[in-house]
Design a protein around this nucleic acid. Structure first.
Length: 278
DNA sequence: CTTACGGCCTGTACGC
DNA sequence: TGCGTACAGGCCGTAA
């Protein structure tokens, strides 16, 4: 379930392994993930030096010295395994779909059992035009993402607020879990129609989104050393969610006393407190 | 234009 | 114990 904070943590985890390094050997072990690997994938990567590793929404952005950028999405189950000092006798798993060896002798393995992830290449100069990135809304942790920007994006939307926040055009990087958490923090019902969110509520919601994401990124950062586990897996640290997956629990809002409810909205699980989320 | 929904994929948690 | 089924979820293509 990698959402923005998890992808950010993976980004920080793999950056030291890749940045400034040359890719000495690349393995592509199947033709496609969610979409096909690009033409000549291995040939276009091998020998390249990695300029920098960054994140946009839920995508990892890996700039290469020759002017191409590797775009990676972790999908639902994608993860990177760092094998310091190379393969070290490790054998590859069936779901290890791509392998990157660096001139420092390290190995990065991309593993994705459900294959909802993707890897593609796009010219760095026109990266914003890449199909995966074009049309993405603002980064929620940027200064550009304000209550007013959010209010305008929600304006005229007839869908429930929950669904609108999952739309990457409204704000980029939120997934089911952090939308649920942010709505609870903001005291807003997931069922409220998006267009009914005016300036004060939008300001509250934008702040809640930033707070939830910042907390999660901080949790990931602080556990980063444990996060790269002994076997090299960039596992997903345990977050303390206030309402997500906590049906029937007491609402954590101070003085509320309500009960967390579970419901399904457009096929996705929503958790909320009917008492303090209006 | 917007919104709704099915499908992709496999591991895990359940019920019988 | 073993089998079957439902479910999880991001994103996209298609339909309404």
């Amino acid at each position: 379930m990698p959402e923005l904070p998890e992808v950010e943590t993976v980004c920080r985890g793999i950056a030291p392994v890749l940045e400034g390094r040359r890719l000495t050997r690349v393995l592509q072990r199947r033709a496609d993930l969610r979409i096909p690997f690009p033409e000549r994938f291995v040939a276009r990567l091998e020998g390249q030096r990695v300029r920098r590793v960054a994140r946009r929404a839920k995508y990892l952005i890996i700039d290469l010295a020759d002017g191409e950028t590797l775009i990676v999405h972790l999908g639902m189950s994608g993860r990177f395994v760092i094998l310091p000092g190379g393969a070290g006798g490790n054998t590859l798993n069936v779901h290890d779909h791509a392998v990157f060896d660096t001139d420092a002798g390290d190995r990065l393995v991309f593993n994705d059992p459900r294959r909802f992830g993707l890897m593609t290449l796009h010219a760095t100069a026109t990266l914003a035009d890449a199909p995966q990135l074009a049309g993405l809304g603002p980064e929620p942790l940027s200064e550009a993402f304000t209550g007013e920007v959010l209010r305008q994006a929600l304006q005229g939307r007839k869908t429930p607020l929950k669904a609108a926040l999952l739309d990457q055009k409204v704000v980029a990087g939120l997934g089911n879990i952090y939308v649920v958490e942010a709505l609870h923090r903001a005291g807003l019902s997931p069922k409220r129609l998006a267009r009914t969110v005016g300036a004060p509520r939008a300001a509250r919601l934008a702040a809640a989104i930033k707070a939830v994401l910042n907390d999660a990124v901080a949790a990931g950062g602080s556990s980063l050393k444990d996060y790269v586990q002994a076997d090299g897996t960039l596992g997903y640290f345990q977050h303390n969610f206030r309402v997500y997956d906590r049906a029937d629990a007491r609402c954590p809002t101070k003085g509320c006393g309500g009960t967390v409810r579970h419901m399904v909205q457009s096929g996705r699980s929503t958790y909320y407190c009917p008492r303090c989320q209006k």
